[in-house]
Amino acid sequence: MATIRIGLDRLPPAARAAVEEHTGPLLTVEETAEGFNSEIAARVTSTTGTWHIKGLRTDHPRVWTQHREAAVAPFLTGLAPALRWRVEAAGWDLLGFEALAGHHADYAPGSPDLTEVASLLRRLGETSCPDIELRHAEQRLERYAAHRDDLRFFAGVHLLHTDLNNANVLVDDQALQGDRARLVDWAWATRGAAWLDAGYWVIWLIAAGHAPASAERWAAEIPSWHTAPAEGITAFAAANANVWSEISTADPDPWTLRLAAAATAWCAHRRTG
């Protein structure tokens, strides 16, 4: 379920003052609609710069997502916006990220953004997994795998993002080709098999209009995809069909139903193709 969003103006004065110790007095505040984990999400400017702020109350049930993002951020150079500062004040945990230029990736068939996302996932695959506390992919999928033995396919030692929603990928058209895309929102960073992020991307590609075979061809642009056994990919597709069935049943919005249909279509393709 999405977290209820509030405006930055509703922060306690002490928390706002703590932010402005890093930014200086804020000149503009643009609340952002994307994302589901944060109570505070805004792009702010002052005379000294521009930042994207994410925040949760320190007693929020998902405040662990703030801790996760702060812990993984130093290891994501060239993959994600830099974390410039962190504030814990007046009952709030607030992260100040570098504000990136660009648009949300377009995953539709034929989009020029697809090659940039593939390049981004290749770079992520070459990044060492930091020695920090992360959930394991096989733990996250334990309740959803068709067979317990399938979990062995998901285990690994690689750093994964796991939420390949196109709104989490920013593409800067002014940057060098092949290095234009960045991943935001690392709350669900996970340790697991190297090929899983390519698999998560497949589901979002199908939801954006690709046939399952076309989506898998894009996944094949990621070298780690070729390390995955065919039965492992099929097991992953089945597990995610169960994940999205549960999500869409609990929260039947158009986008969750679209993702559930995409995951089901991929699962059917794997089992019959």
Rank of each mutant, 00 (worst) to 15 (best):
R148H: 14
L27A: 12
N168M: 02
G7M: 09
H210D: 05
R191I: 00
R16S: 09
R135C: 13
A14W: 04
A215N: 07
A137Q: 13
P25G: 07
R62N: 13
R62I: 07
I233D: 06
G232F: 04
A17Q: 14
A175W: 13
A211L: 13
V63E: 06
D173L: 15
R271N: 14
Q66K: 00
V169E: 10
I40A: 03
E126A: 15
I233M: 12
T50S: 14
N37Y: 03
T272D: 05
H103C: 09
A198N: 03
Q177E: 15
V169Y: 04
V184E: 02
P212I: 09
I222H: 08
I222N: 07
V169C: 08
A145H: 06
N165P: 04
I247D: 09
L160Q: 04
T272S: 12
D150T: 09
A260K: 00
A71Q: 12
R86G: 05
R152M: 10
P12V: 00
E126G: 12
A80S: 15
L121Q: 03
W186S: 02
E30V: 11
T3I: 09
T77C: 13
E133K: 11
T58C: 09
H269W: 15
P252D: 10
S224L: 05
A237R: 03
C267G: 03
P61E: 13
P12E: 03
V171Q: 09
A82M: 08
G125E: 05
L120H: 05
P25I: 08
A193W: 08
T77P: 03
D172T: 12
Q177N: 09
A187N: 04
T32A: 11
Y107E: 10
A105E: 05
V171N: 11
A2W: 02
T127H: 02
N168Y: 01
G156D: 01
V87P: 10
T162V: 14
A189V: 06
A261F: 00
G125R: 11
D113I: 09
T3Q: 07
A167V: 04
W85E: 10
P130C: 02
H226D: 08
A181N: 05
E142V: 02
G232Q: 06
D253L: 15
T47K: 13
L114F: 06
G102S: 04
E31S: 13
P252F: 10
A73P: 09
T162D: 09
P81Y: 07
L164C: 03
H22G: 12
D179N: 14
A215P: 08
H22K: 12
I206E: 09
H161D: 01
A189C: 10
F97C: 03
I233V: 14
C267W: 06
D93W: 03
P223A: 14
A17N: 08
G156N: 01
G209I: 15
V87A: 05
A235M: 12
L134P: 13
S214R: 10
H60A: 15
N165Q: 04
E216R: 06
F153M: 07
L76R: 07
R182I: 00
E98L: 00
S128T: 08
D149C: 06
E221I: 00
D59L: 07
E126K: 10
F36T: 09
S224M: 06
R57Q: 10
S245R: 11
V169M: 11
R135N: 14
P25R: 14
H158I: 00
